Amino acid sequence: MKKITTVLFLLLGLIGGKKASAQMGGAQKITWDVDVDVDVKASKSAVWGFLNNNEVLQSYSNGYIKSIRAIDESREIIFTNGKKRSETIVQTDGVNKFMVIKVNKVSLPKGIKNVRIGIFTKDKGEKKSNIHWVAKIEGGKSEKQILMKQLKAEFDSYVKGFSDIKNGI
């Protein structure tokens, strides 16, 4: 009787295992609409500190951003051309040093439904790291193209600013 019970549990476990694995879908690769990165002569920890300090981050925008200020759980970015963007940092990971930003609905251009920006850091050795900016945009094709150009210009301004770090912080 003990052998029969053991065999039944084994069969039920196998059937249940197949059922569970059959329900799992394969991982889907995200295709980013904007994808920019830069190698920096600064440690990953230093870079993470820069990315989390609005005044320092604004200075590394290479003149593209006039100001970044925190407002409750959101922040407002004012660009040098006078445009504004309200955004919320929806995920931040101080251990792995990355963040995900959602552009708030009030700042979405007409025809755009959702914008997510990711900023990832990667250690590249002693006093060297990589910053990777990505964006995913949902919306109409022509509106999306315009916003992609704007975000690319913004990310490129950070690339220029962070590239100017010379001393290896």
Rank of each mutant, 00 (worst) to 15 (best):
F79W: 06
F155T: 02
N53Q: 07
T121W: 00
K122Y: 07
T121P: 00
Q58Y: 05
F162V: 05
F120Q: 14
V47G: 00
V115K: 00
V95T: 06
L51M: 09
G49I: 03
D93P: 04
V47I: 05
V103S: 01
L108W: 05
T88N: 04
G94S: 12
F162Y: 04
T80W: 15
G82P: 03
T92W: 06
W32V: 06
N54C: 13
V90L: 03
I78W: 13
F120K: 07
V90G: 05
K83V: 09
V100R: 02
E76N: 08
M24F: 06
Q145H: 11
N114K: 09
Q91T: 10
D39A: 07
E73D: 11
T6P: 04
V36T: 10
L147S: 04
K18P: 15
G139Y: 02
S61G: 12
S67C: 11
K18N: 13
V47T: 11
G139H: 05
L10Y: 08
K122M: 06
G63M: 09
D93W: 13
T88R: 05
E138M: 11
W133I: 01
D39E: 08
F162N: 00
W133P: 01
G17H: 02
K141F: 14
Q91S: 14
K97V: 04
L14D: 10
S61Q: 05
K29T: 14
V134Y: 00
T5W: 07
K160E: 08
K41T: 10
F98I: 14
M1K: 06
V103A: 01
K102I: 08
L151Y: 13
Q23P: 07
Q150F: 14
Y60W: 03
W48V: 01
R69N: 15
T6W: 02
A135H: 00
Q28C: 15
Y60T: 02
Y60R: 11
E143R: 07
F162G: 01
N53D: 15
S86Y: 13
K152Y: 11
V115P: 00
K152S: 12
T92S: 14
V36R: 10
S163Y: 06
G63Q: 07
W32D: 10
I112K: 01
T121Q: 00
R116D: 07
S45Y: 07
F9E: 04
Y60M: 03
K136D: 08
D72L: 05
V7L: 06
L51T: 03
F79G: 03
V115E: 02
W48R: 00
K18L: 14
V38I: 13
N52I: 03
G26E: 08
M148I: 06
K44D: 13
